[in-house]
Design a protein around this nucleic acid. Structure first.
Length: 121
DNA sequence: AATTTGACCCGTC
DNA sequence: AGACGGGCCAAAT
């Protein structure tokens, strides 16, 4: 191996992979926020990176539709193709969507932090 | 190489 | 409810 440091490209690529992994791990019928995904991928404060990853994504099997804004709103212009498809896909999974928005969005750390604090039992 | 852009987020008003 | 400002930072101009 060359003693030189790894190309910064690799770090970025790995970050993207971790984000993709988190997204792929979102269970059917469940949603996550961009920031949540980033945080879960070990990249707190990088919500926009999640957005970029989704934007550049080409994997048709990626459940991109399960990623919403922290508000619970679809992160695309209302009425756009993607917007419609996302709401449609979510409804198909049993997620209640109204005007491009889920009723209740799990808050940052809600699940995780709550589980860590209260734990299973 | 500098600037702008963007499927974002959060606290504050 | 919505508006504003600051933070984040890789990719596109």
């Amino acid at each position: 191996m060359t003693p030189a440091a790894a190309a910064p490209e690799d770090a970025a690529a790995q970050a993207r992979e971790r984000i993709l992994a988190v997204i792929r791990a979102i269970p059917r019928g469940q949603v996550m926020g961009y920031g949540q995904v980033a945080a879960k991928a070990g990249l707190p404060g990088r919500a926009r990176l999640t957005a970029r990853v989704l934007g550049m994504n080409e994997d048709p099997d990626l459940p991109w539709h399960r990623v919403l804004r922290s508000d619970g709103r679809i992160a695309m212009p209302e009425g756009s193709h993607g917007w419609r498809e996302q709401s449609q896909r979510l409804r198909a999974e049993g997620v209640a969507i109204e005007r491009g928005r889920v009723k209740h969005m799990p808050r940052s750390g809600g699940d995780d932090l709550d589980a860590a604090l209260w734990g299973p039992g």
